[in-house]
Simulated assay, not measured.
Amino acid sequence: MAAFVNRVNRLRRRQLIERGFADRSIPLEVLSSEEVRERYRFRPETIYFIVGIVFNDLDTPTRRSLPVPPLLSVLISLQFFATGCHHLLLTAIHGVSRCSVGRSVANRPRLIAYFRG
């Protein structure tokens, strides 16, 4: 019985940690068409076309752990391929974790090869 009471007391002492969520705004909604072309080397219409084609391969069946949306994943990959910038810079620009950037970039060459033939 004493072990149970000790466990309950430990649980009561724990502090709840508030989770902070990053703002994942979509750059295509904020930037002009020319700014999108400068950053990603594609026009917004073309980016939406690419996302439409590969959406089923990028979308996750659950929303567990707040996955990166397919559009943002494609934008991260396009910016990486267009500029060759470091993962840490992409993390700061798009407000996602470094692991998410790595997964986005690692999965895209297979999808780009889909377009080539």
Rank of each mutant, 00 (worst) to 15 (best):
M1G: 12
A2W: 06
A3T: 10
F4V: 11
V5D: 10
V5C: 10
N6A: 07
V8A: 05
V8T: 03
N9V: 05
R10G: 00
L11W: 01
L11I: 01
L11T: 00
L11G: 02
R13W: 07
R13D: 08
Q15E: 11
L16A: 13
L16W: 06
I17G: 01
R19I: 09
G20C: 15
F21A: 05
A22E: 11
D23R: 15
R24C: 07
R24D: 03
R24T: 05
S25T: 09
S25V: 05
S25K: 13
I26E: 07
I26Q: 12
P27T: 01
L28R: 00
V30T: 10
V30E: 07
L31I: 02
E35W: 02
R37Q: 10
R37G: 08
E38S: 12
Y40T: 00
Y40N: 00
R41Y: 02
R43N: 12
R43C: 11
R43E: 15
P44G: 01
E45L: 02
E45G: 03
T46H: 06
T46L: 08
T46K: 11
T46D: 06
T46W: 02
I47T: 01
Y48G: 01
F49V: 08
I50R: 04
G52E: 02
I53T: 12
I53F: 15
V54E: 07
V54Q: 10
F55R: 12
F55I: 12
F55E: 15
F55D: 14
N56V: 14
N56I: 09
L58E: 00
L58Q: 01
D59C: 14
D59L: 12
D59A: 08
D59T: 10
T60P: 01
P61L: 08
R63I: 08
S65W: 09
L66Y: 10
P67F: 03
P69L: 05
P69N: 07
P69R: 06
P69K: 04
L71P: 02
L71M: 10
S73W: 00
S73G: 11
S73D: 06
V74C: 04
V74K: 00
L75I: 00
I76T: 03
Q79W: 05
Q79H: 11
F80L: 06
F80P: 00
F81N: 01
A82P: 00
C85Y: 15
C85N: 13
H87P: 15
H87K: 14
H87Y: 13
H87N: 15
L88P: 12
L89H: 14
L90E: 07
L90G: 04
L90Q: 06
T91P: 06
T91F: 05
A92M: 12
A92W: 06
I93G: 03
I93N: 02
I93D: 03
I93R: 10
H94A: 09
G95I: 01
G95W: 00
S97L: 05
R98H: 14
C99A: 14
C99R: 15
C99M: 14
V101C: 04
R103P: 02
R103Q: 04
S104Y: 04
R108I: 12
R108Y: 14
P109V: 06
P109G: 06
P109T: 08
R110I: 09
I112K: 10
Y114Q: 09
Y114L: 13
F115N: 05
R116G: 08
R116I: 13
R116W: 14
G117L: 02
G117N: 06
